[in-house]
Computed example of a mutant assay.
Amino acid sequence: MATLGRNNKILLDLVRKPGNNLCADCAAPEPDWASYTLGVFVCLNCSGMHRSLPTVSKVKSIRLDYWEDSLVEFMQERGNSAAKDIFEKCVPAFYYRPQLKDCAVLKDQWIRAKYERREFTGEHENFLQAYNSDLVETTLWKKGRDNKQFLKRIFLLSQKDFTLKYFIKGDSKVPKACITMKDLNANFQPEKIGHNHGLQISYLEGERTRNLFVYHEDGQPIVSFFNAIRATRLAYLLNIHPRLQNSDLIPQITRESLKEGYMEKTGPTQREPFKKRWFTLCFMNRKLLYYKSPLDATELGAVFIGTENHGYSVSESSGRGTRTSRWHCRITLETPERQFLFMCEHAQEQREWIEAFRKIISQPMTSEDYASRTMVFHRYHMRPFSGGGIDLDM
Results as ranks from 00 to 15, higher is better:
Ala231Lys: 06
His241Met: 04
Ala231Trp: 00
Asp108His: 10
Ile360Ala: 06
Thr366Phe: 01
Ala297Leu: 02
Ile179Gln: 10
Lys173Arg: 12
Tyr290Phe: 15
Arg255Gln: 11
Pro31Cys: 06
Arg112Phe: 11
Asp391Asn: 14
Ser158Leu: 02
Lys265Glu: 05
Pro18Leu: 00
Arg63Val: 08
Ile240Phe: 09
Leu140Gln: 03
Cys46Glu: 12
Leu156Met: 13
His124Lys: 10
Thr324Met: 06
Gln99Asn: 07
Trp33Leu: 02
Pro336Gly: 08
Tyr95Thr: 03
Ile331Glu: 02
Arg230Trp: 04
His124Trp: 04
Ser318Trp: 01
Trp110His: 08
Ala93Met: 06
Cys329Glu: 10
Arg6Ile: 00
Cys344Val: 02
Thr121Asn: 08
Pro294Ile: 05
Asp102Pro: 06
Gln149Asn: 11
Cys26Leu: 02
Lys89Leu: 08
Asn246Cys: 13
Arg63Trp: 02
Asp248Gln: 11
Gly311Pro: 10
Ile168Asp: 10
Leu11Cys: 04
Arg286Ile: 15
Val42Cys: 07
Trp110Phe: 13
Arg6Met: 00
Lys182Arg: 13
Ser52Tyr: 05
Arg255Phe: 09
Met284Val: 11
Ser133Asn: 15
Ser81Ala: 11
Glu119Cys: 09
Arg230Pro: 00
Ala24Gln: 04
Thr163Ile: 04
Arg51Phe: 00
Asn7Met: 00
Phe41Leu: 12
Asp369Thr: 12
Val72Leu: 01
Ser202Asn: 05
Ala186Phe: 04
Val72Gln: 02
Gln76Gly: 00
Glu207Leu: 08
Leu212Gln: 09
Arg118Gln: 15
Gln270Arg: 10
Ala235Ile: 04
Glu125Asp: 14
Arg153Ala: 11
Thr37Ala: 07
Ala371Tyr: 07
Arg326His: 12
Val15Gln: 13
Ala34His: 07
Phe94Arg: 01
Ala231Asp: 05
Ile229Val: 13
Asn187Ile: 02
Met394Asn: 06
Arg117Leu: 14
Arg210Met: 10
Val56Asn: 01
Gly144Lys: 06
Gln348Lys: 12
Lys275Ala: 07
Asp146Val: 09
Gln270Ile: 09
Glu368Thr: 15
Leu234Arg: 13
Leu4Ser: 03
Lys148Met: 12
Ile86Tyr: 13
Glu207Ile: 02
Gly311Cys: 10
Lys152Cys: 14
Glu260Met: 09
Thr298Lys: 08
Ile331Val: 11
Asn7Arg: 05
Glu368Asp: 15
Gly48Gln: 04
Tyr131Pro: 03
Tyr291Thr: 08
Ser367Phe: 03
Lys359Thr: 13
His381Leu: 14
Cys344Met: 01
Gly122Ile: 12
Cys282Asp: 14
Asp369Met: 08
Gly319Ile: 08
His241Asp: 08
Ser158Asn: 07
Ser70Gln: 12
Glu205Asn: 14
Phe127Ser: 06
Lys259Met: 09
